[in-house]
């Protein structure tokens, strides 16, 4: 737009279009005055937010208290807390089989385990990578870009690439065979498939968190390190006494952000594990919501909404913690 390189024809066509767009807007300005213009400029954005973000939020809570299979609220009977009762009724929460909605509790436990391992692994890998990149100044751009590349790929693509890599005839099995290990169908084994869902998630997202942590590391004043080297502090002491404490707030933000995103695991795991398999070993909460509402002919929108509301509450708490931390960091 700033370069005059665009061909004259394209430029002239754009001028014609803009002339047509401009006329009514200028008419509005003459009629309503300059002071009203910001409202006009905000209108498209606010209308879209209103319809597609705020309206759904308003509906979401009410929806959770309705039953039946109708889509519109007017077609749905009010059922009070029935949906929540159905989700939460359980003899022993540790054994999903004893719950009325055993699928939901399986998904909850799978998600909790995934969040635990994924947060720990991603944080560790991202932190180590950021520390190394911060130290080695040269070629940092290359490696930073390399680690960041998967972040830009689509979850479907990542699911398929890894599915092929882990296939019975895939590269990993070929490599294991060279070492004399018998081939394994990783994605049909409960333990291995869970392990690789975490591996793929770390592979997918670690570049993003590395970038945030690296930015935090570079904001640490250099004179602190100079002072440490004058005092002949050991590298380990420097790491634990200067780097990590000063990175602390960033680490906390990354931790919460990671938790918020891990709770919502769906896309890549869905593709990688053929919809949560083997069995329900990799079925997570978002998948449960999706399947209840859209996955089959069940159309249990009320139950799905109730599960959404419960997950939303957890995310809200995490978000509030994050905001509190962010405010603390600023002050």
């Amino acid at each position: 737009m700033s370069t005059p390189k665009a061909t004259d024809l394209g430029g002239r066509a754009l001028d014609v279009v803009m002339g047509l767009v401009e006329a009514p807007i200028n008419g509005f300005e003459r009629l309503m005055g300059r002071k009203r213009m910001p409202y006009l400029f905000l209108a498209p954005n606010l209308i879209l937010f209103g319809i597609f973000t705020f309206l759904p939020i308003a509906i979401a809570v009410g929806y959770a208290f309705t039953g039946g299979t109708g889509l519109f609220v007017s077609e749905r009977p009010f059922v009070g807390f029935d949906n929540f009762r159905q989700l939460l009724q359980c003899e022993d929460y540790l054994r999903p089989g004893s719950c009325r909605e055993s699928l939901f509790w399986t998904a909850v436990w799978n998600t909790l385990w995934f969040v635990g391992f994924n947060v720990a692994a991603t944080l560790l890998v991202a932190l180590v990578t950021a520390l190394i990149l911060n130290r080695a100044m040269a070629a940092r751009g290359f490696f930073r870009a390399m680690f960041f590349y998967p972040v830009l790929l689509s979850p479907v693509v990542i699911g398929l690439i890894w599915k092929w890599f882990l296939d019975r005839n895939g590269l990993l099995n070929a490599f294991l065979q060279m070492l004399g290990v018998p081939p394994e169908i990783f994605l049909l084994d409960v333990g291995w498939s869970r392990f690789f869902v975490v591996v793929v998630s770390v592979w997918f997202h670690m570049g993003f968190y590395t970038l945030i942590l690296l930015a935090g590391l570079q904001a640490i004043p250099k004179d602190l390190y100079e002072a440490a080297s004058i005092d002949a502090a050991s590298p380990r002491r420097t790491l634990f006494r200067i780097t990590l404490p000063l990175l602390g707030p960033n680490l906390l933000v990354v931790l919460i952000l990671l938790m918020i995103r891990s709770v919502q695991i769906f896309d890549e795991a869905w593709v990688l594990t053929n919809g949560g398999g083997p069995g329900t070993a990799n079925s997570f909460i978002v998948q449960y919501i999706y399947q209840m509402a859209f996955g089959s002919d069940l159309r249990l929108f009320g139950l799905a909404s109730a599960a959404s509301v419960l997950m939303g509450l957890v995310l809200l708490v995490l978000t509030l913690i994050q905001l509190r931390l962010g405010r603390k960091m600023e002050s």
Binding site: F52, L55, A60
Partner: peptide, 22 residues
């Protein structure tokens, strides 16, 4: 108001958002 929508993930509102789109 606009910035606060950053905090609302699609996964939480996908059922009512679908309803609105319908």
């Amino acid at each position: 108001l606009i910035i606060s929508t950053l905090m609302i993930p699609l996964t939480v509102v996908m059922v009512p958002a679908y309803l609105v789109v319908v």
